[in-house]
Design a protein around this nucleic acid. Structure first.
Lengths: 139, 139
DNA sequence: CGGTATCCTGTCGGATACTG
DNA sequence: CAGTATCCGACAGGATACCG
C-alpha cells in the first residue's frame, strides 16, 4: 500500500482529518464500534427482525433510552431499517439492512479473533500487572 | 479501557454478562476499537517501529498524554511492544507485536468496507436528515 | 526526548419516571 | 408497546504546563 499519500484521500478539512489520514479504518470505527451498536447489530443479525421490547430483552442490560439512541443512529447511518405499524397497540420492527449485513463477515472474523486471542490478551495483562507490582516494590 | 462502567462485557457482579451473551465481538471492541488505538495500530503497522515523537508526528492531532495512555494500554494488552534504551537522550521505540499484527487482515477488511460503503452511509444520513426536516415541517 | 501533572469539558450511558 | 423526559455520574480525551 502507498505510504504517506495514497490512503484515505485528504478530502475533508478539520480536526478529524489526521486520524483519518493516519488510519482509513477510523471512520468505520465511529459508525460501527461503540459500546452498544455492536451487540445490537449482532442480535439483529442473529435473531432477525425484532420489536423494540424483544431487542430490550435480548440485550438485557441496555436501557430503553440508550437503545433508542443507538437504534436511531444506526437507522440514520443506514445500518438498520425501522418499520412502524400504525396499530393499537403500536408495533415497531427493526431489522438489519443490507448495508448492515455487509458487515457480517467482519463480525465473524472478529469473533474468530476473539476466540483465538482473547486469552492471550488476558495473560499479557496479568504479566504486565505483576511486573508492575514488582517494579513498584523495588522503589 | 471500557468507557462508562463495564464496557461491552465485564460487569463482574452477576457473573453472566449480557452484552457478551448477545455479542461475542464486544470484548474485542473494547480492546481494539477506541478512538485512538486504531490509528496507532495502523500507523505502527504501516511505518514499523517508531519512537514516541514519530508517532506523535504521524498522528498529528493526538496529544502526548493520550498517546501515552493508549500506548500503555496497548502494551498491557500485548498489542504493542515498548523498548526503552537507556541512553542520553533517552530513546523509546514502539512496535506492533505479533498479536497486534494478527489484527491486520481485519483492518484490511475494514478499510475495504470503508472504501466501498462509507459513501452509502453518508447518503443515508442525508436522506434521513432531509426526511426529518420534512417531517418536522408537517407539524 | 519521553513523558507527567492538572484542569476542564463533551459525550456516552445508567437510573428513574412518565406518556400516546 | 415504544418510546420520551430528566437528572446524574464516569471517563475518554483536549489544552496547557512542567520535569528527569
Amino acid at each position: 500500500m502507498g505510504s504517506t499519500g495514497a490512503m484515505g484521500s485528504a478530502t475533508k478539512q478539520g480536526g478529524k482529518v489526521d486520524s483519518e489520514l493516519a488510519c482509513p479504518v477510523s471512520p468505520v470505527v465511529d459508525i460501527v464500534f461503540s459500546r452498544w451498536t455492536t451487540p445490537i447489530l449482532w442480535t439483529l443479525h442473529e435473531f432477525g427482525r425484532q420489536r423494540f421490547v424483544e431487542l430490550q430483552r435480548n440485550i438485557r442490560t441496555i436501557t430503553p433510552k440508550v437503545l433508542t439512541q443507538r437504534l436511531r443512529q444506526m437507522e440514520r447511518d443506514g445500518l438498520v431499517v425501522r418499520t412502524y405499524h400504525p396499530e393499537v397497540p403500536p408495533r415497531v420492527e427493526y431489522e438489519i439492512s443490507e448495508l448492515g449485513r455487509s458487515l457480517a463477515p467482519i463480525f465473524a472474523h472478529l469473533a474468530e479473533w476473539s476466540a483465538e486471542n482473547l486469552r492471550k490478551v488476558e495473560r499479557a495483562r496479568q504479566e504486565f500487572d505483576t511486573a508492575d507490582e514488582q517494579a513498584s516494590a523495588l522503589r
